[in-house]
Simulated scan of single mutants.
Amino acid sequence: MSNRPSADALPPQSALSATARVEWQTVALVIVIYGSFFAVTWFWQSLPLLVVIALGGWLIAWHGSLQHEVIHGHPTRSRLINDAIGWPPLSLWLPYAIYREGHLTHHRDEHLTDPIEDPESSYFTQAAWEHMGRLGRRLAAWNATLLGRLTLGPLIMILSFLAQEIALVAKGDRHRAALWARHALGVAAVLFWVVWVSKMPLWLYLFGFVYIGAALTRLRSYAEHRYADCHDERTAVVENSPLLGLLFLYNNLHVLHHKRPGVPWYHVPFLYRRHRDFLVAANGGLVYDGYWDIARRFLLQPHDDPRHPLHREPLDLD
């Protein structure tokens, strides 16, 4: 039985958001991320290949964490400025505007994990599961393991997303087409810098930066949500992970983010420690002791049945 508290012990969002007009900690982070991106791509030939890949993957994942921050209203009070900070498509495949729209929809917590209502759900409806065929179901089952999520997961995620977007544009969605046209200009600028100016092979950027960065992001999101009858208990916490916590801008303390999505990244660890008992009680104790704990449990075992409990019927997985 759940021991969830009956009242929210956290300070109200209005109090937590009463910050300066400019959050200089995040501005410094913006300079570090973009400055490091230009430095690594410019000096890549002077670095060992594995170092380039490690730094490139880290920077793309870190940039994705920064985009998540600006979606939630940081580092200024101007959405125009914030969106300009988050817009450059370093990952190439994900337009910022689509990410923003989908992620804010994801924050309707009453619909968390629902494959119809939650754009970031990893679950399938029964109908979608049956439509996938045997090979598709086997890939989905493999993708439910941590090893599968880190290896094939980025490819499945990117190709599925692009297929959905192509279908929307093909159906005549002019708004989506215009959005992708603007995104294409940004992609062209990134590739011009990387391939033409910095002379980096395209395969190295696609694999070492984009794919590895997507894999790191998939690590963060792998055990982030899990269906439970109470929506507060669908959001996990990954503690004791200082290095990856910085990479994810402490979004690993995810239950706090869903409770107070406007809290800036540099306040999250302190606020979590101060209210840990309440937050762990609120999410039903869904806590992992670092990402090694997740790997120990789920490296080759599925995190959950890929079919959503409210959208499935008994079915032979073969």
Rank of each mutant, 00 (worst) to 15 (best):
W44P: 02
W44H: 15
W44I: 03
W44N: 07
W44Q: 10
W44E: 06
W44M: 06
Q45C: 13
Q45S: 15
Q45W: 13
Q45N: 15
Q45F: 13
Q45L: 14
S46M: 14
S46R: 15
S46N: 14
S46Q: 15
L47T: 03
L47D: 03
L47C: 02
L47K: 11
L47W: 15
L47M: 15
P48S: 11
L49W: 14
L49A: 15
L50P: 02
L50Y: 10
L50S: 11
V51M: 14
V51Q: 14
V51R: 10
V51D: 06
V51F: 14
V52A: 04
V52M: 10
V52W: 11
I53W: 13
I53V: 15
I53K: 06
I53R: 08
A54E: 05
A54P: 03
G56L: 11
G56I: 11
G56Q: 06
G56M: 09
G57E: 06
G57C: 11
G57Q: 08
G57W: 04
G57P: 05
G57I: 12
W58Y: 15
W58S: 08
W58I: 10
L59N: 05
L59H: 08
I60V: 15
A61V: 08
A61L: 05
A61F: 07
W62I: 10
W62T: 12
W62G: 01
W62S: 13
W62N: 12
H63Y: 14
G64I: 09
G64N: 10
S65K: 02
S65T: 13
L66P: 05
L66N: 02
L66E: 02
L66D: 04
Q67G: 13
Q67P: 06
H68E: 04
H68N: 05
H68I: 07
H68M: 02
H68S: 06
H68D: 05
E69L: 00
E69H: 00
E69G: 01
V70P: 01
V70T: 14
V70F: 00
I71D: 05
I71S: 03
I71P: 01
I71L: 04
I71F: 02
H72T: 01
H72S: 06
H72K: 04
H72C: 09
G73M: 04
G73E: 07
G73C: 07
H74D: 03
H74K: 12
P75Q: 07
P75F: 03
T76D: 03
T76W: 01
T76H: 03
S78F: 07
S78W: 13
R79D: 15
R79L: 10
R79V: 11
R79H: 12
R79I: 03
L80Y: 12
L80A: 14
L80V: 12
I81T: 13
I81L: 15
N82Q: 02
N82F: 02
N82D: 12
D83I: 00
D83W: 01
D83N: 13
D83L: 00
A84K: 07
A84P: 04
A84L: 15
I85N: 00
I85C: 02
G86V: 10
G86D: 10
W87E: 09
P88N: 06
P88G: 06
P88I: 00
P88F: 00
P88A: 04
P88Y: 01
P88H: 00
